[in-house]
Computed example of a mutant assay.
Amino acid sequence: MGAMTEKLITYTAEQVAETLTPKLCRETLEAALKSDFDPADDPARTGTNVGTGELLTMPSALGDWAGCKLATVAPNNPDKGLPLINALYCIFDRETLRPYAVLDGSVLTAVRTPAMSAVAVDYLSAKDAKRCVIFGTGLQAEHHAYAMAEVRDLEDIAIIGRSEDSSTKLAEKLAEKGLPARAGSREDIPEADIIVCCTSAKEPLFKGDLVRDGACVVAMGSHTPDARELPGCLIGRSLVAVEAKHTALAEAGDVIIPIDDGKCHKDDLVTMKQVVTGAVSRATDRPNVFKGTGMSWQDIAAAAAVVEKLR
Rank of each mutant, 00 (worst) to 15 (best):
K263G: 00
K173E: 06
A241C: 14
V73L: 14
G221E: 01
L33Q: 01
V196K: 02
V73F: 09
P231V: 04
D36Y: 07
K266A: 15
M1R: 09
D64Q: 11
S125D: 03
T113A: 08
I91A: 12
C264Y: 03
K266C: 10
Q298E: 13
D209Y: 03
A279L: 13
A147T: 05
A13G: 14
W297P: 08
A87V: 07
P75Y: 01
C68N: 14
A301K: 04
S117T: 12
N76A: 15
K130F: 02
A250T: 03
R212H: 12
D268H: 13
L20M: 07
G253I: 09
R98L: 14
G67Q: 10
E308D: 14
K80S: 02
A17P: 06
P83A: 12
C233S: 15
A248S: 12
S238H: 11
E150C: 06
A301V: 04
A201W: 10
S296F: 10
D36L: 06
R94D: 03
A279V: 11
M220T: 10
C233M: 04
D254E: 14
F92G: 03
R311I: 05
A192G: 02
D41E: 15
Y100D: 00
D260E: 15
G236K: 06
T113P: 05
L139R: 15
E14H: 13
W297F: 13
L88Q: 14
S281L: 12
G184H: 02
K309R: 14
K80G: 03
A40N: 12
S166K: 15
L84W: 05
C264A: 08
V16A: 09
E172D: 15
T137Q: 08
Y11V: 00
K266V: 05
M116D: 12
R311V: 05
A44I: 04
D188W: 02
